[in-house]
Design a protein around this nucleic acid. Structure first.
Lengths: 150, 150
DNA sequence: GGATAATAGTTGTTTTTGTAACTAACAAGG
DNA sequence: CCTTGTTAGTTACAAAAACAACTATTATCC
């Protein structure tokens, strides 16, 4: 019978594999916040992200959002439609490039954004509270690096 | 207009929101490795994880795996069936508790595991190479903490 | 100008996931 | 034993994601 465990010197554990760890951390740390935009606003993750981008950066096209957040265009297309149906955003055809449409939040969208942003901010604070300021800062820097942002 | 507390001064950027950052980092950093188990072995993420757990920790039940990796039992059930069909694992009904089945890798499963583990190890090394050893160590510690592991 | 390629966004179809309900086996208390 | 509750795992159905093909518009370049 082979012994899968210690064939060679093997300090490689799944629980140390960075992609696994990152994924577990991401899932665990988004769970609670997810409840908010799901239960309170009936939103999906992508919808929340689109809302957040528009609230955060102002008027953008679907393409802009997709590029910045690395979300596929079909997901964005569907999220935009839902947000529009719920009167959270409006779209205006760009007359300089009639393929694109400029998206922006309505009053309702803005107020939902504000509420969610405030909750997100508190939530982030809570997550980060278990680390020192320096640690948290380093963590974000490393994550941005791994994410290929910056 | 009313002034909710967190409304005006806004240093809160989506790209600093930890759940978002974690998710982006997780996706970006698993993309390349995903290609390996997808294209080379036709596996899904959960299948790879089950394989890895069995390879790493030896014989386990579906429940054990689910608890350790926080994977839902239906996902595991499906992954196990596929891995069994591909002759990567076998199941043996536990005679002490006939509800459970003890899962273990076949020869084929073990060899796939070994190959994937080696690729994963290199891949992890590559990811971590952009940080100092201390930084990487801290990163893993923080992620484990966020993930609720340990 | 006109063919060809590229881009913004949508729609249709297939996979994969999530959720709930289910079977079969065990556990505990009466 | 026998009801009630719990656990391991599966299955059926609904929701969401992935993937491919599509329309409409703009850009390229001969």
């Amino acid at each position: 019978m082979t012994h899968p465990k210690n064939d060679e010197k093997d300090e490689f554990d799944l629980q140390n594999f960075l992609p696994f760890l990152l994924n577990q951390a991401a899932e665990a740390s988004s769970l609670e916040f997810q409840q908010v935009y799901k239960n309170r606003f009936g939103m999906l993750r992508t919808e929340w992200r689109v809302l957040f981008h528009l609230g955060n950066y102002g008027e953008m096209t679907a393409r802009d959002i997709g590029q910045r957040a690395k979300i596929h265009k079909t997901k964005i297309s569907r999220a935009v439609r839902k947000l529009e149906q719920r009167r959270f955003l409006r779209r205006i055809r760009d007359e300089n490039d009639r393929r694109a449409e400029r998206l922006s939040l309505t009053q309702m969208g803005t107020s939902a954004y504000r509420e969610l942003r405030s909750i997100a901010r508190n939530y982030d604070g809570k997550l980060v509270a278990q680390f020192t300021t320096a640690e948290a800062e380093l963590l974000r820097t490393m994550l941005r690096r791994l994410a290929g942002l910056d």
